Every structure is written in C-alpha cells, then in structure tokens.
Simulated assay, not measured.
Amino acid sequence: MQPDSPETGGIWRPDGPDLIVHSDNLAFIQTLPDASFPLIYIDPPFNTGKTQARRSMRTVRAADGPRIGFKGRSYETVRGATLRYADTFSEYWEFLEPRLVEAWRLLADNGTLYLHLDYREVHYAKVLLDALFGRDSFLNEIIWAYDYGGRAKDRWPAKHDNILVYVKNPEDYVFDSAEVDREPYMAPGLVTAEKAALGKLPTDVWWHTIVSPTGKEKTGYPTQKPLGVLRRIVAASSRPGDWVLDFFAGSGTTGAAARALDRRFVLVDESPDAVRVMSERLGIEPERLI
C-alpha cells in the first residue's frame, strides 16, 4: 500500500496534526513514506512469558468478553479496572524483525532509533540491528535502572531495562546534550561547588524510578514507562518541530514527552485499551484502521 492509498486515506502528512492510530502496527507503518521520522522509539512486548497486568485508578466498564489481537495476544478489561495482556510469543523474532526493518526505512537520514527491551531478547536484537544498520551505527546501550518490585531469592534480582540506540548515519545524527536534564553528582564533594550545583550529564546508566502506582502520572496501562525517561530521549535525539514515531505506543508516554518538548508525534497500537488510554491522556480522537 502507498501512503495515499484508500486503505489508509493518507491520514499522516508531514504538515498534518499529531496522530493516534488504532491499527496493526506493521500494516500501518508499511504505508508511511521513507525517511519521514527523525526519531523512532519503540517499546515492544518483552516476551516474558507472563501476563502483564496493572490496576487503573478509576473504574471502567467491564468488557463483554476477551479481545484477541495480532498473533493471538489477548487483551481484556475486567471489573476493578485491571488491564492485561499476554506477553508471550512462540515466534518472537518473526514478529519483531519486519517491524525493525520498517523502522530503518522510516528513519530520516539523520535519524535515531531507540529500541527498549530487557535482558531476555536484547542480545539477539543487538545482532539483528548490527546487521540491519551496520555496526558503526550502534551509538549506545542505555541501562535504565530502577528499584521497585519483588526480590528473587535464587539469583541477583533483575532491576533494569536495556535500550539500544542506533543511528541511520553515524556521520550525521542529532544528539543535543545541552537539552538533556542534568543529574546530581553521586559524590558532590569531589567536584567544585559550581559543578555540584549544575549537576552532571547523564551517562549510559539512567537511575530513574518507575511510574508510581499511586502517582498522578499513572494511567493504569501495563508496562507504562516514565515520562522522565522519554523526555530525555526526545530532548537529546530530536529538534523542536520534528516528528517522533512510536508504533508500540501503549499508554502514550512518547506522545506526552513529544508534546511537552514541542515535537509532533504519531502513536500506533492495536490494543483498544491502549488507544483509549492514549486518547484520554492526550485529548486526540484516534484514527481507526483495525
């Protein structure tokens, strides 16, 4: 399908409005034109083999029955406002690889991809992205570390996610460290008072809390990522007015960060729960292509 095909109605335009799209993400992103997005952030399911669930802080109407999505993933809304999805794939890389190929195609010539995974699949992703982008295009592996949740007794508890960062052209990409929020020094006594007051630029290890289960930021959507993490990504790797694409958009945090920083965004998800949460959070009526 072409970007202006009847199937999509040409709903995305470079001079158009921000978008929330309810669609199978591969079917939709294949209609978008090459090199359209300076920044792509994606946070796909982690293939944990578990059912992810979160309780929202407000009451919603109970669904009539389960909703089945792509590859048999199930979504349901139950009384008590618990949102769930099954995070398990028998053919995970058959699912993810074509979407990463599309991400490479959609990146602008100076664009950057952030792929958010965890220890289960990130090593395979690194090999695949090295082949797709070229090893010289690998910029960073960011470790997002947090300290919340259960503690394993038979191993070191896993309390971090991995974010792989690749640029389309290692000779020409956007990275503006001056726009990134600064952090307190861990040993402020070892630097001057001026430096301690200013704070330091983050490294590739980000200590940032998860979204508080009782905080105002919480939407109730499973695996919601903190706004502070996405603000840092958007601030560093895009410029005001740029388009940001997230086609595993979930709770819409990428859109919230983009809006706060004067960027434009396209958010895509096939989950009706995700689309509802994003629409209410961002005040945008979704385009429904599913």
Results as ranks from 00 to 15, higher is better:
184 P>Q: 08
140 N>V: 09
141 E>Q: 12
80 G>V: 10
182 R>Q: 13
7 E>N: 07
173 Y>G: 01
188 P>F: 10
166 Y>M: 11
163 I>A: 02
280 E>W: 13
118 D>S: 09
95 F>Q: 03
266 V>G: 01
16 G>L: 08
7 E>W: 12
276 R>I: 07
257 A>V: 04
102 E>M: 11
236 A>Y: 05
11 I>C: 11
242 D>F: 02
188 P>A: 10
4 D>T: 13
170 P>M: 07
75 Y>A: 00
240 P>N: 04
192 T>P: 10
272 P>W: 00
282 L>D: 06
50 K>M: 15
104 W>V: 03
283 G>I: 11
133 F>W: 05
94 E>N: 14
175 F>D: 07
185 Y>F: 15
276 R>C: 07
96 L>H: 04
143 I>Q: 08
34 D>P: 05
205 V>H: 05
243 W>C: 03
248 F>G: 00
23 S>Q: 03
114 Y>C: 09
160 H>Y: 14
221 Y>M: 04
191 V>G: 11
229 V>Y: 01
100 L>S: 05
94 E>C: 12
266 V>D: 00
11 I>E: 00
51 T>V: 15
166 Y>W: 12
122 V>A: 12
120 R>W: 06
109 D>Q: 13
158 A>Q: 14
271 S>N: 01
247 F>L: 03
92 Y>H: 08
251 S>V: 02
285 E>R: 15
